Simulated assay, not measured.
Amino acid sequence: MASQVYAGPYGTEPRHPGWPAKLGPLVVPAGTVRLRPVHLRDGREWSRIRVRDREYLERWEPTAAGSWSDRNGFGAWPPQWFSLRALARRGQCLPFAITVDGVFAGQITLGNVIRASLRSAWVGYWVSSELAGGGVATAAVALVTDHAFKAAGLHRLEATVRPENTPSLRVLGKAGYRQEGLFLRYLDVAGDWRDHIAFAVTAEEMGNGFAERLIAAGRARLPEPR
């Protein structure tokens, strides 16, 4: 069966360029960070972390129907995984699991992928509270950004963060994103319409790569040769 292709102003390319893929590694204080496609078998650890980290995560995530335990229990993962896989196969999403030393530690997603003359996506991520401050999220953002501009063929990435979310603001700044403005009452989070700071980066700003910038700044390194 022939693979699907997209024919647009930039020529003919695969329907979902850059997917699936495995990215990394980068070594940070918390351990060795890699990205890979999300798996159905991630459900148990995904649920364990998210149920445990409710207080840490819920205040930053969009308001949704149902209780936190219902939305993040083990049974909630299979439909989410099927949905993410379907979007990835249509080229609308690149959903990655973040692993640290080979263990599931969070997620990072390129979502709302639009091609044609826009070629953009948003970046969203979360990481286990046990790894907070260990450089994991910054490494994951750098890896997925490099991948977006290279293999995935995108031109612009955006991320929005509540002004109160200081750790995430630092992640995007260290990863090389720049602040573009403030979106007033942008998203319903924790039961109210919240302002968000808009960050973005384009392919022209890539230079030698965002992972390489982290290495040059001493925030990450490559593994030692075996």
Rank of each mutant, 00 (worst) to 15 (best):
Ala2Cys: 08
Gly11Cys: 02
Glu13Thr: 07
His16Thr: 00
Gly18Asp: 01
Gly18His: 00
Pro20Val: 00
Ala21Asn: 02
Leu26Asp: 00
Val27Ile: 05
Pro29Glu: 11
Ala30Val: 01
Ala30His: 02
Thr32Ile: 05
Arg34Asn: 10
Arg41Asp: 15
Asp42Tyr: 03
Asp42Phe: 03
Arg44Gly: 14
Trp46Gln: 02
Ile49Arg: 09
Asp53Arg: 03
Glu55Leu: 06
Glu55Pro: 01
Glu55Ser: 13
Leu57Phe: 06
Glu58Ala: 15
Ser69Asn: 13
Asp70Met: 10
Asp70His: 10
Asp70Ser: 13
Asn72Ala: 06
Trp77Thr: 02
Gln80Ser: 14
Ser83Pro: 03
Arg90Asp: 03
Gly91Tyr: 01
Cys93Arg: 05
Phe96Trp: 04
Thr99Ile: 05
Val103Thr: 13
Ala105Leu: 07
Gly106Asn: 03
Ile108Trp: 08
Asn112Trp: 05
Ile114Lys: 11
Ala116Asp: 11
Ser120Pro: 04
Gly124Trp: 09
Glu130Trp: 10
Ala132Arg: 14
Ala137Tyr: 05
Thr138Leu: 03
Thr138Gly: 03
Ala139Tyr: 02
Ala139Gly: 07
Val141Ala: 14
Thr145Val: 08
Asp146Asn: 07
Phe149Gly: 00
Ala152Gly: 05
Ala152Asn: 02
His155Lys: 10
Val161Ile: 15
Arg162Met: 15
Ser168Cys: 03
Arg178Gln: 12
Arg178Leu: 14
Arg185Lys: 12
Leu187Ile: 15
Val189Cys: 07
Arg194Phe: 08
Phe199Glu: 01
Phe199Arg: 03
Ala203Gly: 14
Glu212Ala: 15
Leu214Tyr: 06
Ala216Phe: 04
Pro225His: 08
Pro225Trp: 09
